[in-house]
Design a protein around this nucleic acid. Structure first.
Lengths: 127, 127
DNA sequence: CTGAGTGCAAAACCTTTGCATGATA
DNA sequence: TATCATGCAAAGGTTTTGCACTCAG
């Protein structure tokens, strides 16, 4: 597909994504990088993110707002509770949850289950 | 926000959505309605769906393909395993999963937890 | 009657693609 | 040098908005 050359643009995208601890959209990431003084095109951000997802270095998630969000793929197990109304995201830890999830995934022939388990609800502020 | 008048167009959208047993995009829903002989604008479908989501009559879900999907909100508890690669969706049942999910949601002040719990992975065909 | 709902077209939006230029190995 | 990557602009797709018209209440 390509030989994956190393460019400062790709490194900038990866660095900017690593600096985030949650999901971020391509547009936001682009602005964040521009904010650091580096100047690169939005197109490049999209292509770098697509590459990273293909190589398993990043996860992508679509929320109900028209933008796609990306996140660095880490071995950490994060679970998110996402507010359907304001998109506020809360991390939580739930022992046993992951085991249940992966067992059901295996039963259905699924592998590489996302470490991101997303639950959607309405948060207390929006209730 | 509005006085929610009853029109045959809204009824058609709701009926078409109820006829589906899974998620369907606004575009597909529009085509489905046109297929029944009824003629209405795509704009109206979007507005009807937005209304239904606001009133809690429908659930919306964004997958990583650029289209938003909608689904009638029923008391049934469905869980989905979604393939990150081909978007194939498998329903599964996992006793105890829901209890865990709702308990963690309550602990974090979240209510109206979605009955749709989505797990993302790679299915056997795409592995 | 009155105003919310509809529908068409145009706008806005995010994302992808084409192609010439610039940079990497 | 030979490719691959970048970046701009344009295209592509979905969703939203403006506005005159229609219809439910």
């Amino acid at each position: 597909m390509s030989q994956r050359r190393t460019t400062w643009q790709k490194q900038a995208v990866q660095a900017a994504l690593e600096a985030q601890d949650g999901f971020i959209s391509a547009q936001e990431l682009h602005l964040a990088i521009l904010g650091t003084g580096k100047k690169l095109g939005l197109t490049t951000v999209y292509r770098a993110l697509t590459d990273m997802v293909e190589q398993g270095q990043a996860d992508s998630l679509a929320i109900t707002d028209g933008e796609m969000r990306f996140r660095i793929c880490t071995p950490e197990h994060h679970h998110h509770l996402i507010c359907r109304s304001c998109s506020k995201t809360v991390e939580f830890d739930l022992p046993g949850f992951e085991a249940l999830a992966s067992s059901v995934a295996k039963e259905n022939g699924f592998s590489e289950l996302s470490h991101e388990i997303e639950l959607f609800g309405i948060c207390s502020d929006c209730r």
